[in-house]
């Protein structure tokens, strides 16, 4: 099976459904903003979102009322402060209550790797003395069968859909990404379906090294040409992080009315290539 080259509207409409578990990954770099915005426009509900660092894009999806549950490890606007839509959902149940399944980065990274490896759970060393283990029933401890050492297990992440943004894809749908590659390879390989938005579609991929992160066409469901699709995060080699926009988000996120204005504006704007 090869990836289909689709439009953003088609790819989101084909693979998303209400209640789906969706992971949109990108560790500060290559965050699939345009795809997230299209999910808001198409009005999906009760999504279970997964992401190590839910930043501005998850704040927007939560504020827009698309999200029922969040599995995450750090929810803030990096270097700026809070995500106020996320906070209002947790603290005040607005616009709807948000169930949280909270972990550490080490646990989330291991859980993605477990998902990609066909494991039911991830086993690692962590959470020594940390209270998260007391409040999250999906964090369990076990003894190493060989040494007796205390280990931790968390369920593998197996998203219905993973969405990432990458620099390039070939016409055949092979994908390459470089720079801070985060946990995207694991997130794609862990998922039942994967959508990849890209800066460029080229005739042939010419990776800069044989060790660049490559996702062969047959591991991806849909490839979408979305130049600028990671803005205001960045795409290494194409554009840099718009830190100013992250700083500006603070005031919009903080105020329901300003957020709703932003949301109306987003909904009335179609992404067009």
């Amino acid at each position: 099976m090869q990836a289909k080259i689709q439009t953003l509207q088609e790819a989101i409409a084909t693979h998303l459904f209400d209640g789906a578990t969706v992971a949109m990954e990108g560790f500060t770099h290559l965050i699939p903003f345009a795809a997230g915005h299209e999910i808001i426009r198409q009005g999906f509900k009760n999504l279970e979102l997964v992401r190590m660092t839910p930043d501005m894009i998850y704040d927007q999806l939560i504020g827009a009322g698309c999200v029922r549950k969040l599995r995450f490890s750090w929810g803030g606007n990096p270097g700026v402060g809070s995500l106020y839509r996320l906070r209002e959902a947790i603290e005040k149940g607005y616009p709807q209550p948000l169930e949280v399944d909270e972990h550490s980065h080490a646990a989330m990274a291991a859980a993605y790797a477990a998902g990609a490896s066909g494991m039911p759970c991830a086993i690692f060393k962590g959470y020594y003395g940390a209270d998260l283990e007391k409040v999250n029933p999906s964090i369990k401890t076990l003894a190493c069968p060989f040494t007796g050492e205390r280990l931790v297990a968390v369920p593998a992440i197996r998203p219905d859909v993973t969405i990432i943004h990458a620099q390039k894809a070939s016409k055949k749908g092979d994908v390459s990404l470089e720079g801070i590659v985060g946990v995207q390879k694991e997130a794609v390989l862990a998922a039942k379906a994967a959508i990849v938005t890209v800066e460029e579609i080229v005739d042939e991929l010419q990776p800069s090294s044989p060790n660049a992160v490559i996702l062969p066409s047959w591991t991806v469901s849909a490839v979408v040409h979305v130049p600028g699709g990671a803005k205001p995060s960045y795409a290494h080699g194409y554009y840099s992080r718009d830190n100013k926009a992250y700083i500006a988000w603070e005031a919009i996120s903080k105020d329901r009315e300003k957020f709703n204005e932003w949301l109306q504006e987003l909904k009335s704007t179609d992404y067009a290539v």
């Binding site: 560790f27 500060t28 190590m52 990096p78 700026v80 790797a113 801070i180 946990v183 390879k185 830190n243």
Partner: peptide, 23 residues
Amino acid sequence: LSIGDGELCETALTTVSVPEMFS
């Protein structure tokens, strides 16, 4: 500004994946 600005990658000796970093 963030933990993953491009500047960090461009000036690093190497950049590894996040699961590799933590494990």
